[in-house]
Write a protein that binds this DNA or RNA. Structure first.
Lengths: 349, 349
DNA sequence: CGACATTATGACACCGGTGTCAGACTGTAT
DNA sequence: ATACAGTCTGACACCGGTGTCATAATGTCG
């Protein structure tokens, strides 16, 4: 009655040696079966596999790592004020890692830290990573990328703007998304559309801004610099920008912030000042962060497939590690407009 | 001019053998110095340390792991709808890990998943974790804890209610926090205070509820079950509870939600129904999540030191791993009331 | 049937550290 | 000088796998 439910077996350690002995073959043959190597007779392979089952054998990843000089660990670098973005990145990366029996090591650090390269160098020598996923803003750091190349560490870039280079890169179409969102506002009758930029180190910042401008141009609306505020993706920067924008005379009828946190800051200030959203002011964000639907009115925004981008990036990275290919893998995913209550046709008051 | 800025040295691999040879001692002596073992003459120690510097030697954690049957990896289990809670947990855990040259492996999984034990078993055999940090709701899962004990895996519990057992456990005083917050509302003149419970699997749920009840009792306010709604910490559940509460006749003048996400849901619905917060309705949450200050009005809430709890838990865990002690480490940290705009004296209308 | 290519297998060194143990070298008490 | 405890050091096996290479077994072809 004791040990109930806990699959017993003998709790003795099962190593490659015990499997070999039990199956009556050499360690090396067991190793071959383990790694799906050729040149093992079907009969032998069968026999060994059966012993795996019977003894519930799991190879020791540490020993494998030592022999092959690998760690089976992928590192994930990030420096991002948005917690939700980080968790989405992690969740995509984890999915890919688990699928291929890798572990994920998360490493927050600062792009503008006193010495990023030293920091990463340290990370690499102490943790022996097999590869690194770069999330924004690291995906566009030429300095870091040059370092990784020189050290010959495989890497994949998520949501990067650098095109046509020879590395793995997955991104979504930010410019297109920003274009559609701006057009959505224009179609609602808005012409005075303020814009809050993101952090200058992120390539998304330039892309989203460019989408905004192109939509204006297409619809023959003059671009006015006074309607543009500099943010950095943080809620705080959004609050500062909101102040500048809502103080404008005449006040814009719509605000497009480069992410949802900054948009939420605009909404907060507008509400404090008793400016009615969306009746007197339309507000839109970008990312479809949780906060976009946790506030009232819900934010119109652009959803990007962050998990999927990261998952694909890590999968390709792992593929590349075990079998370096020539052709760099690059892919662009679609961003999608989500309309909620925060945007509305311009009133004729 | 080439290689500028990249500290060169010869890029050859530096192993314990090269260090030993260069210093003119045996591998074993180098190993002794590395591990700060006794019985090394000061002169020798000095000499070896100098060679470490000179060759920039970093021991290979994988080889060490194999020899000592350790992985230098701590696992972090979580199953929590709050992203901000998760990132705070991670950040505390990371800090402790980095300090002691451990890695952190994050592992989201479901408490009520089809087979939690199998899942964790799998994790343990494939990743060879040295220890596990249990965050809510796992910190209170007797089944899981029994399993870890039987497998002899060191663990630490964060924010758990189980007291007086023999394991490492760090928590904050949730009951006291809830008590203070409720008292704050009572002092503002509220007597009809609705309460939204958290997820029944989390011990915090019971503690916070109990703090609420005790404050009512202390101030001679009758406890009424109709004012209590069942939530589960998710925004969605908060929205459902909000509906039930705001439909009550007469409507309560204050709502205390067991976390900030649910409080935000109450605020959203109240705003939609044009109930003025805080003039007509005071709202309070718990956790001091980012959203509490990202919305208007900002939420009165209780701040708990999540990072610090986790950091301490992991530090104690690592201490325990390298040197098992008898005395279990247990500690209770303070939770702190933060007042913002969402609570106000009851109006006499 | 011999010459040779191909497949299947195992012996053994090796990855880069640590544990065990024996031996050399002190210092101190007899 | 002898005995003995304590300090310092290195040889060697070992952790649990993989890489290299030799060799045995089998298949193919002229």
């Amino acid at each position: 009655m004791s040990d109930a439910g806990l699959k017993g077996k003998s709790m003795k350690k099962v190593t490659i040696n015990s499997v070999a002995e039990y199956a009556g073959v050499s360690k090396k043959t067991v190793s071959r079966v383990l790694n799906n190597e050729p040149n093992v007779s079907p009969a032998t392979r069968e026999k060994v596999l059966k012993v795996f089952e019977e003894l519930n054998y799991k190879p020791n990843p540490i020993a494998r790592g030592l022999a092959q000089n690998r760690s089976f660990i992928i590192g994930c670098l990030y420096d991002n004020p948005s917690k939700s973005y980080i968790t989405r990145v992690q969740s995509g990366a984890l999915e890919a890692c688990q699928k291929h029996s890798y572990n994920l090591l998360i490493h927050p650090c600062e792009l503008r830290g006193q010495d990023l390269i030293d920091n990463v160098d340290q990370l690499l020598t102490t943790s022996r990573l097999d590869g690194i996923v770069l999330t924004p803003p690291f995906s566009d750091s030429n300095e870091l990328i040059a370092f990784l190349k020189q050290r010959n560490i495989p890497y994949a870039r998520v949501a990067s703007a650098i095109e046509g280079d020879d590395s793995i890169s997955i991104r979504s179409n930010d410019e297109q998304g920003a274009f559609e969102l701006t057009e959505h506002l224009i179609n609602l009758g808005h012409t005075e559309i303020a814009f809050i930029k993101g952090h200058p180190d992120h390539s998304a910042t330039e892309n989203r801004f460019s989408g905004y401008q192109k939509a204006l141009t297409k619809h023959g609306i003059e671009y006015r610099e006074r309607l543009v505020a500099e943010g950095n993706f943080s809620y705080h920067s959004g609050a500062d920008s909101a102040k500048a924008i809502l103080d404008l005379e005449p006040r814009p009828t719509a605000v497009f912030a480069s992410n949802d946190y900054m948009a939420a800051a605009v909404l907060k200030l507008a509400t404090q000042r008793e400016i009615k959203v969306p009746e007197q002011l339309s507000i839109a964000g970008f990312d479809n962060a949780p906060i976009a639907r946790h506030i009232w009115p819900g934010l119109t925004t652009i959803a990007q497939p962050v998990e999927e981008m990261t998952r694909i990036a890590v999968e390709e990275l792992i593929k590349h590690i075990s079998q370096p290919q020539e052709a760099p893998f690059q892919q662009v995913l679609e961003a999608k407009l989500i309309t909620r209550e925060s945007t509305k046709a311009r009133s004729n008051s």
